[in-house]
Simulated assay, not measured.
Amino acid sequence: MTQRPFRILGIQQIAIGGASRDPLRRLWVDMLGLRLAGEFRSERENVEEDIAVLGEGPHQVEVDLMQPIDPARSPRVDQPALNHVGLWVDDLPVAVAWLQAQGVRMAPGGIRKGASGHDITFLHPKASEEFPIAGAGVLIELVQAPPDVIAALGGGTTPA
Rank of each mutant, 00 (worst) to 15 (best):
M1A: 14
T2G: 13
R4P: 02
P5F: 09
R7L: 11
L9M: 12
L9R: 03
I11P: 06
I11E: 08
I14C: 01
A15M: 02
A15Y: 00
G18C: 06
A19C: 00
S20D: 15
R26L: 11
V29M: 07
M31W: 05
R35V: 09
R35A: 12
F40D: 11
F40G: 11
R41T: 13
R41E: 15
S42E: 13
R44L: 04
R44Y: 02
E45I: 00
E49W: 00
I51N: 12
I51Q: 03
A52P: 13
A52T: 10
V53L: 15
L54G: 08
G55E: 07
G57Y: 02
Q60V: 01
E62T: 08
D64I: 00
M66R: 00
Q67N: 02
P68R: 04
P71A: 11
A72G: 03
R73G: 08
S74D: 14
P75N: 11
P75I: 04
R76T: 10
D78C: 03
Q79E: 15
P80W: 06
A81Y: 01
A81P: 05
G86N: 06
L87G: 11
W88A: 11
V89C: 13
D90I: 08
D90F: 05
D91P: 09
D91F: 03
D91H: 14
A95W: 06
A95T: 12
A95V: 05
A97K: 06
W98E: 06
L99V: 04
Q100K: 15
A101L: 00
G103T: 04
G103S: 03
A107Q: 15
P108D: 15
G109D: 06
G110W: 03
R112P: 04
G114H: 09
S116A: 14
H118F: 09
I120K: 02
I120T: 07
A127S: 15
S128Y: 02
E130W: 03
F131L: 06
F131Y: 15
I133D: 02
G135Q: 01
V138M: 14
L139F: 10
E141V: 08
L142K: 08
L142T: 10
Q144W: 05
A145K: 09
P146L: 01
P147R: 00
P147N: 02
D148G: 04
V149H: 08
I150A: 05
A151E: 13
A152T: 07
G155S: 08
P159C: 05
